[in-house]
Computed example of a mutant assay.
Amino acid sequence: MSSFFDLPPLPQVPVAGSDNTFPVRRVFCVGRNYAAHAAEMGVEVDREAPFYFTKTPWAICHTGSTIPYPLETENYHYEMEFVVAIGKPAFRVSIDNAMDAVFGYACGLDMTRRDLQLAARAKQRPWDLGKDVEDSAVIAPISPAADFAIADQRIALSVNGEVKQDAHLTDLIWSVPEIIAHLSRFYHLQPGDLIYTGTPAGVGPVVAGDVIEGTIDGLAPVTLTLGAAE
């Protein structure tokens, strides 16, 4: 049998120092993984286990893009994130072995229709309309794991040159190996999966014309420009 129509190919992310690209299979996001961000959102940190939401691969947006202000929101927020790219299968892996699955790391933005997210949260509904937004998983080129060692790197974000978020990777509540080990209990992680590991405090709204830049020491920066609404 043949299909009635063809689907677009999976998004591809550039890899620093390579002509090959990283095809995106799935996008997992960790919620409330910085204590100060949880506090500013008015919620307690769940220290028993991390929790997640997902975005479709077609939410991927390349750094340097200009996108229209998204549909049906009046409160669109930036969230700067450290992104982990999975390059090997991982299923029920231990914390000690979790890093073997890592392909590399990147700067990313988890853009959020905050008004829709909070409305859903208040009604105890899923966050999909607030989080799984077209062009909302912004990502810079991936640096191979061999070229980057997780330590006390600064993670920061500015809007129009003004610093809004400023923290360190050591501020993560759940570390990268802990996240991979935990997530692999619920999913067969595979090459092409991305994990956005959470955002520091300082999230806030952007409007048409704003330019966002996110940085993590040692990684390629991620930038995004907001255009006029459609």
Rank of each mutant, 00 (worst) to 15 (best):
D132L: 08
A101W: 02
F82L: 13
A229L: 00
N20K: 15
S3F: 12
R121C: 03
M111L: 10
I139V: 13
I216D: 05
L129T: 12
D171I: 01
V176S: 05
P50F: 02
P68N: 07
D132M: 10
H77Y: 13
A16K: 14
G108M: 01
G209E: 02
Q124M: 09
L118P: 00
K131C: 12
S158Y: 05
D217Y: 00
Y78S: 00
L226R: 02
R32G: 06
L219G: 01
H37D: 08
V93N: 04
T66W: 09
F148D: 06
V27Y: 13
F51T: 14
S158Q: 12
G64K: 07
T63P: 02
A140T: 12
I95M: 03
A36N: 13
P144Y: 01
F91Y: 09
K88P: 03
V84P: 00
P14E: 15
P144G: 06
S136L: 05
T73M: 02
P221C: 09
Y34T: 09
F148T: 03
K88L: 14
L194F: 09
A140E: 13
R26N: 15
L118F: 13
N20R: 15
T170Y: 01
L172R: 04
H62F: 04
E79K: 03
G42V: 01
S3M: 11
E44Q: 14
I142S: 03
C29K: 01
D147A: 13
A85L: 04
E162N: 08
L118N: 11
L219D: 02
R125P: 00
P8N: 04
E178T: 13
P9Y: 06
S184R: 04
Q153A: 03
G87L: 04
A122S: 15
Q165T: 10
L71I: 07
L224E: 09
R47E: 15
F91D: 04
K55T: 05
L71P: 12
F103S: 07
Q190D: 14
M80I: 15
C29T: 10
F51N: 15
P23W: 09
I86N: 04
A98Y: 02
A146C: 10
S143W: 04
N75L: 15
I212F: 05
V93W: 06
A59P: 00
D100K: 00
H188Y: 12
Y52A: 05
D166P: 00
A137Q: 10
D96W: 01
V203N: 09
G214A: 06
G198T: 08
D110M: 00
S143L: 14
I179G: 05
G198A: 08
T54F: 12
A85G: 10
M41S: 06
F82G: 10
D19K: 13
A59F: 01
D132W: 09
I155E: 04
S175P: 10
I212T: 06
V45Q: 07
R32V: 14
Q12T: 13
P70G: 10
L183V: 01
Y34M: 11
D115L: 02
A122Q: 14
H168Y: 07
L189S: 08
V102D: 01
N33H: 09
